[in-house]
Each structure stands twice: as structure tokens, then as C-alpha cells.
Design a binder for these strands. Sequence first.
DNA 1: GGAACGTTTCACCGCGCAACGAAGCGAGCT
DNA 2: AGCTCGCTTCGTTGCGCGGTGAAACGTTCC
Lengths: 223, 223
Amino acid sequence: MPRGFSGIAALLADPTREAMLAALADGSALPAGRLAQLAGITPQSASGHLRKLLDGGVVSVWTQGRFRYFRLADERVAVALEALAGLARPRVTPAVVQDPRSAKLAAARCCYNHMAGSLGVALACALAKRAYIKIDGDAVALTRAGSRWAEEFGFAARATSVDRREVRLCLDWTERRFHLAGRFPGGVLQFLLETGHLVRQETRVLCVTPSGKLWFRGLGIEA
Amino acid sequence: MPRGFSGIAALLADPTREAMLAALADGSALPAGRLAQLAGITPQSASGHLRKLLDGGVVSVWTQGRFRYFRLADERVAVALEALAGLARPRVTPAVVQDPRSAKLAAARCCYNHMAGSLGVALACALAKRAYIKIDGDAVALTRAGSRWAEEFGFAARATSVDRREVRLCLDWTERRFHLAGRFPGGVLQFLLETGHLVRQETRVLCVTPSGKLWFRGLGIEA
DNA sequence: GGAACGTTTCACCGCGCAACGAAGCGAGCT
DNA sequence: AGCTCGCTTCGTTGCGCGGTGAAACGTTCC
């Protein structure tokens, strides 16, 4: 852990690490291999970068089996990243500060393999309200009713007690609330994409189709 | 001007540049040579660093004769620096966050060759109220009354129209208001130090003596 | 004019770090 | 058990950057 701000700045000064941190900037947790892929480097290079970021306290890690999920260590990291990003190119296009993409990203986006944004948060709330999932503290479990509901749509979902691979909470950065991550939410997203209820636009942006609006309305969500 | 935050971070990632920026963190403007001295490097090294910081928009420069005064380009730079510094060593000595030195620095400090802090701001207000100086926008001029007042204390001060070397405004970082910089405020500080109204403590901290309290009271300032 | 001074530019040296290939570790699957 | 897969560690290469000395530029003072 460095003493002054130059040590922290050195950790953020590499373009490759910037690509990784930008991918984590929305609060999502990504495994090392995917971060390597996003940054366009080999896994062993990414491993070195992530080790530095971890030692510097910029990211935290959560090991699950052979996967190691990395995320930003703290909200203050995201704040510092935004402060730095705001310093770069300060006087370029002073108007049009509101990026139209950011609005779409806040509405609905894919976070690795599941849904995030206000739509992802609404989905999590709806599933909890219908007792398809049961939230206890930061632990989430898929109920038998939720398992049956999942089978309706053709993707298997085991009603395990507390299996973080199956379903877990993920802090949504734009909403400051939790949405769902894991295999089960991943299956939901995959189902919605395959059936055309959602279409994937440019990087990570999700767009709700007319049939998707109907599907979400069935859960009490106005998309 | 870099595109992402990694470019800006690279500018802040050098310990030598950190020393320079820390010296400028209170909003003071320092010449290149003094920054080199503070950072413990040769002038030609400092010149290279300052060129990078200038190109990156981190600092701004104001040339005066053979001197080039550097300062932080923007308040947002200071905000970003604080955000980064807050990230370094987050869990070391969680108590005693309030540095007793910072309170003294906020009360009264020397900014290169003049006074800053709440005492410096109060002095600027008192001199303006007594029409010793005339503030018009960001231009400041020493009046004839101010010139006579200065001669009482033995330091020459020319009542020029608008000479930025004589007197100019300097944004006070702790007060977010302006205090005075230039030869004339420099002469005031020199006078106060020589007469024992102020004593210089550890780096940049100024302490008001009992005789100093009387002197400031004569200007309507309770130090 | 000449000298002193603050600053910048240039050329060079040396260290540090990011990238990869190869190999090793550990967990999960059959 | 053997295999696959994700990740890490080790060793190497090569580029980039910070540091200094030498020299040039511009300003100020005599």
C-alpha cells in the first residue's frame, strides 16, 4: 500500500490496467481471464496487473473454485477514477456532456453474463417479491417456486440452499442497489436474448423489444 | 492532453512530481527553481517534469520576467489529488485523522513570500475596506493611501496602476477566497516577521505573537 | 555592452516495468 | 486416476522514462 498519491497513481497509470478498471467501473465482478480478454493481453500478463492492483488495495478478489472474481475494492476507488477521468480532456466538447450511451447503460446493460442497470435491479426486486428468490443479508437462495419458474423457460436452475455460483448479489453502480448475478441470472439473460425479448447493442447496452416489454410486464415491471 | 484516466494518472505517478504538486496543493504559485529545490532535483529535471504537467493540463504557468510561476491549473486537480491521497493508506491510523498541523496551516501560513490562510484573506479584506488597495475584477492596484501606509512601516511600495508584480490576487485553497500576492504583500510579510509580529514555525506555518495581535487589531482583524 | 541568473533544450546513461513463452499449481469433471 | 481448465510464477526481452551534465536562450541588473 503506497504512502503518497503517486503510488496509487502509478497503479492507475497503465492503459492495460485502465481497460480492466473501466470494465470493473460499474461495480461488476469479473474473472481474471475475462479481464485479460477485455484488455487484449495474455492471462499471465493480466495476472501480474491484477496482483499489483490487489496489493495496492484498488481491487478486491473473491475466489470461487478455479475462478477469481475481481471488483473495485471500494466506492472511493470509483470516485477517484471519475475524478481523474474528468481531468482528462477537460475542454473538449464542453456541450453535450450527457452521453446518450450513458443513459442507455443506466437503463439496462449486461454485466458479464447477467443484467444490470435499473432493469436488472427491478428484476431482482420482482423475483424477490414473488418469492422466486430469498434474500437473507447478502446471501441469496433460489426457492423451489423460482426453480419451477425457471424451468418454464427451459433453463435449468437448481434450488440450492446458498450457492453463490447459482445466484448472488451484485452492487449496481448506477442504481446503488443490488441486482442478481450468477448462473441463474445468467440463464435468464441468455433466455431473454435467445427469445428476442432483449437485444444486445453496442458494448453492454441492452434494448428491450416489444415482446420483451410484455414479458417484463408479466413480472410487474414496466420496461 | 491524455484521453483516458491512465494518461493523467501517469503524470501524477512520479514521486518527484508528487513533491512538486504537494507544494502547489494549497493554491500557491511557485517558480520552477523553487519547485526543483523542494523536490530535491536539478532545475533541468524540474523543467522536464513541469513541461509534462503543463502539457497535461495539471498545472498552469504565469511568466514574469525570467521567472515562471507554476500553480495547479484548476480546483478539480486538487480534488483529484485528494481523492488519490485518500486511497493511499486507507486503514492506517484510522483515528487522529485531524492533523493538528492542518488547523495551523488553515489559520495562517506563508505562501511563497506572502501570507495565506484565514489571516491572509482577512488582511486582504481589511486593506480593501480601508482603500489601501483597489480591486477591480481580478486586477488589483495599490492606492496612494496604501502606498503611504506602506511607507509608515519602512518598505517601499509603488502606487502603480496595475502591476501584477506589485500586487495580485491569489486564490486561497483553505478559504476558497482571494488573498494578496506580489512584492507588496511580500513586503508586508517580511515586515511582520522582522518586527516579531509573526514567527515562522515548521514548514509554512505562521504564528501570531502578542504584539502581532495588537498590530492586526489596528486593522480591525482579531487574529 | 557585459555579467549574472532562471530556465530550457539536447544527448546520454541506467533503471524499472510491461509483455510474452514456458512451466507449475489447484480445482472441477468424467 | 487422468484430463481439462483457469490462474499464477518464473525468466527473458525490449521499450519508455527519469536523472544528470553541457550548452543555449531570454531577462534583468550594472
